[in-house]
Design a protein around this nucleic acid. Structure first.
Length: 511
RNA sequence: GCCGCAUUCGUCUAGUGGUCCAGGACAACUGCCUCUCACGCAGUAGAUCAUCGGUUCGACUCCGAUAUGCGGUACCA
């Protein structure tokens, strides 16, 4: 049935998957799932010179991490395989031949150096050379050469390419689901190479042949493809596949956070956020580019962030699960203009997702970090700390800095805090705190009454002054949760040890 | 250069001819909460809807021009 929705994500294995590509994959996935259709992963590796080892696995791993699943693809097979274009190599030539027979394409013998020279020549005259209906007669191809000559060259093994023969002066309209009709005149379009001299098709031929044979119903891809969409439409026409031509939707680009321009590889680490889903170790340069996963982003958060960068549900809800996105997704709500990535908002999203994780899950993520710091703590204690403190952080990497005093006694005291909080006579008050802790039953309400009500309030002392000094003694800084709760967590002995140590270390001051 | 696409608060966006003196979110700021720092809550500020024309009784919404940005212009995808 040609009515079934079948979409494909078709990356090129030339490096790590860019975050813009991830979004393209996500939109394809949402669209497919919403319509009960199929999501296909096709690898477009027609340029063998740009192959990067590991890239294909990286793409699969990244999308798997994000929860973008495929129904067919290189890694899982399917009824329309193979799904890697290099594995489909033998099938393309017949289609190129079909085009030539139909008068839609021609052989061209111009060598790369000759074309380069031609471009230079035009450039010198401040013009741009384009291999098209106006210039092809002066080039070396099956349109300008005699049939015998063409035959001779091919039989002698001379390398050739197959170019599309764009009909002159034809208006070509591409209907785009996001932008409406986009019309271009064929005179301005060049005779693109469809079949390369190395026997591989170019993207243009391969993507049409594959989309057709794989019965793709919708092509959802980046805006950078819009200029070549008329070529693709013409190819469907040339093959006589107009009836089943997929519908097109060209997505707006993801821009850099500052200034303008397409988000590129280097921006991420420079601006403090990743442009890749996972860490990527470049096999050639050894360079490391950081990924969302390793930076502590939750996959659900990344999906949410990406979904809303260029699309909106039409309501004011911003936190959306994959299931909700599948239900709500709608191509007509995709915006037309490029979106800049906002680090602050991304952080906020991650914070929201942090709160949605259970204390146990947060503890699971935190445990390896505790191990690194050589901390041995009971599971129940770690879970409790995580439960109390997760609301303060956005990334698990921030947990140690905000909770270390739960596990390790402070070794130094913030000088600014001492100046502000540790006033004259404080050693006496702290000694009293120790006395209270030591004599009163170690229980929240009892301590609260003895220390806060009877001692501090009862003696007309400044609540903040005393409690903050206690905090300084126990934490080392003027941060943290409710003081008594913290004391209860640490236990009587540990608290007393810390307070005594602060008395010994800071000592009495004048002010 | 040529072709194409785009243009609403700092950022992401709502808005599909009147209900918009343009709504929400992040960030900012103020206040509340409070033993600190956060969180949370409440509130404030922030957009001559790129500019100029046109169509219309009426335009952020339609049309045109200009400007700016981006994309494309490879035997790369």
């Amino acid at each position: 049935m040609s009515q079934e929705v079948r979409v494909r994500f078709a990356p090129s294995p030339t490096g790590p998957l860019h975050i813009g590509g991830v979004r393209t994959a996500l939109y394809n996935y949402l669209f497919a799932k919403q319509n009960g259709g199929k999501m296909i992963l096709r690898i477009e590796d027609t340029d063998q010179t740009r192959f990067v080892p590991g890239a294909e696995d990286y793409i699969i791993e990244a999308l798997t991490w994000l929860g973008i699943k495929f129904d067919e693809g290189v890694h899982i097979g399917g009824p329309f395989g193979p799904y890697r274009q290099s594995d489909r190599k033998p099938m393309y030539k017949q289609y190129a031949d079909q085009l030539i027979e139909g008068g839609w394409a021609y052989y061209a013998f111009d060598k790369p150096e000759e074309l380069e020279a031609k471009r230079k020549e035009y450039e010198a005259q401040k013009r741009t050379f384009q291999y098209d209906c106006n210039t092809r007669a002066q080039m070396q191809n099956s349109l300008s050469l005699s049939a015998d000559e063409v035959k001779r060259r091919i039989e002698s093994g001379e390398p050739y390419v197959v170019r599309f023969k764009f009909p002159a002066d034809t208006e070509i309209t591409v209907h785009d689901l996001i932008r409406g009709d986009v019309t271009m005149n064929s005179n301005l379009l060049d005779d693109k190479v469809l079949f390369k001299s190395d026997g591989m098709p170019t993207y243009h031929l391969a993507n049409i042949v594959d989309d057709h044979t794989m019965e793709i119903s919708h092509v959802i891809r980046g805006e950078e493809w819009l200029p070549s969409a008329p070529l693709h439409v013409m190819l469907y026409k040339a093959f006589g596949w107009e009836e089943t031509m997929p519908k097109f939707a060209h997505l707006p680009l993801l821009l850099k956070p500052e200034g303008n321009g397409k988000l590129s590889k280097r921006d991420g680490d420079r601006l403090g956020f990743p442009v890749f889903p996972l860490d990527w170790h470049d096999p050639k340069s050894g360079e490391l580019s950081s990924g969302y996963r390793e930076r502590g982003y939750f996959p659900e958060a990344v999906v949410n962030i990406l979904a809303l960068l260029g699309w909106n549900p039409g309501t004011e809800q911003e936190i959306l699960s994959m299931d909700e996105l599948v239900k709500l997704f709608n191509i007509s709500h995709i915006s037309k203009s490029g979106a800049k990535f906002n680090v602050e908002k991304a952080k906020w999203f991650n914070h929201e997702y942090m709160q949605m994780h259970s204390d146990e899950e947060v503890a699971d993520m935190f445990q390896p970090i505790l191990d690194e710091h050589g901390v041995k703590a009971e599971r129940g204690y770690v879970v409790k700390v995580c439960g109390m403190m997760k609301e303060r952080i956005s990334f698990i990497s921030e947990m140690w800095d905000t909770t270390s005093y739960f596990f390790v006694a402070p070794t130094e005291y913030d000088p600014a805090a001492i100046k502000k909080r540790w006033k004259a006579g404080m050693t006496i008050h702290m000694a009293k705190v120790i006395e209270i802790l030591d004599t009163v039953p170690f229980e929240y309400n009892a301590i609260h009454k003895a220390l806060l009500d009877d001692y501090i309030v009862g003696n007309g002392l400044n609540m903040g002054q005393v409690m903050n000094s206690l905090r300084l003694a126990v934490v080392g800084k003027t941060v943290g949760p409710d003081m008594l709760t913290l004391v209860m967590m640490l236990g009587k002995d540990e608290t007393i040890r810390r307070v005594q140590r602060a008395i010994d270390t800071i000592g009495e001051v004048e002010n």
